[in-house]
Write a protein that binds this DNA or RNA. Structure first.
Lengths: 208, 208
DNA sequence: TGGGTACTGGACTGATCAGTACCGAATCAT
DNA sequence: ATGATTCGGTACTGATCAGTCCAGTACCCA
């Protein structure tokens, strides 16, 4: 018992500052994603982060700020996907690769849970929901639209309305796994590959 | 003050029984849909229904039952849409009518809010979420699959995999308005018609 | 007329929770 | 060494809430 206390104390002081901030973030993320905003208490977070509640309040003004930090802190993770968004010689093959990439990224449990969380709290934090919408799904659609426009100008695709084509592509690929992920606890990431492939097949049949 | 009490009492007695049950249901629905499960208190519901809290507990065992009553009580409303799901001579025209019907139904504020509510509470009430999923979206997809299979057998459509075709159709039509409805407060039911039409156009280009 | 039922309204319990206050210990810069 | 900062731990405030209890009232039926 004394040992535990000493061990805990060891992480205190200046060295512990950054460490505790990260631990708080991680604990809050895990709990918010698992139980939601309202059902996660600051005491829960403090306990999970092995930190006193007071320490949380030195790093974050209040519970809301901790929540916004989680949501906005994950917004930039689409960038990694957006960078791989280019098509070479093999149009069908590359679109298939992109679709598989995309669905694999979005169907990840953490992404699904974050999405569910933002939707769940959309009435409590409307601006946050809008920001998330603008910065994640809307940005991906815009990137696809730009790609399809370029491909159309090159004569390799026939998307007169690239924006609509992008929306069609996105929802052909994501619709089923995303919807299942919203309602069902376990997303069953089995047949993501075949879902992506059939989506690309339908898309190309309509837009080539 | 006395007048108010008398006026309130006037609705009491046996005549008030059914009335109060309905009023409770309505008040609970409005509040749950607006503020969510956790942020709606039984006192709120009692006040909105102009009923004492005790009366609520004579009709419903607890808060959860009131919530399930709301969700499951709205499950059968898809039936009205499912009945209009048939195609005559004009395939493209009828599909367009169906798509417009469908998107208009799903984009209604109450339907959007109910969907958001079920998703928000999916971790609290997993079975309820699954039931809703099975009885509403999954049923619609199954109905479309049956329709497309029939049309394929008649040689009017080319859907070797009717289930996938149905999913593609549903998400081409619903993807954008549903996603907007989940994140954004006001769904902006403006261009639903053109969304439905472009979805049908893409679908037929791929599956005819 | 009298018993049963549905309702009101308010008080109450027990629990949870966000946020604050305070103390003592550990650490670091000087 | 000393003072400032950061931390843990604990206790506290004020508020909210689900669910219960109860005394009294209006209505219906026999």
């Amino acid at each position: 018992m004394v040992d535990e206390a000493v061990e805990t104390r060891r992480r205190a002081g200046r060295a512990g500052r950054l460490a505790s901030s990260g631990a708080i973030r991680d604990a809050a993320a895990a709990l918010f994603l698992e139980k939601g905003y309202r059902d996660t208490s600051m005491d829960d977070i403090a306990a999970a982060a092995q930190v006193s509640k007071q320490t949380i309040y030195t790093h974050f003004a209040n519970k809301q700020e901790l929540f916004e930090d989680l949501v906005l802190g994950n917004v930039d993770r689409v960038d990694a996907f957006l960078e791989r968004l280019n098509v070479g010689e093999d149009l069908a093959g590359d679109l298939s690769r992109i679709a598989r990439d995309y669905v694999t990224f979005v169907a990840r449990p953490d992404v699904i849970r974050l999405r569910r969380l933002v939707i769940a709290e959309a009435s409590r934090f409307p601006e946050l929901a809008r920001t998330y919408y603008d910065r994640v799904p809307a940005r991906v659609v815009a990137a696809f639209a730009a790609l399809f426009q370029k491909l159309t100008e090159e004569g390799r695709l026939n998307a007169i309305d690239p924006e609509t084509a992008a929306q069609h592509f996105v929802w052909l690929v994501l619709g089923v796994p995303l919807d299942r992920g919203m309602f069902l606890a376990v997303p069953a990431a089995d047949d993501l590959g075949s879902i992506a492939d059939s989506a690309v097949r339908t898309f190309l049949a309509a837009y080539r």
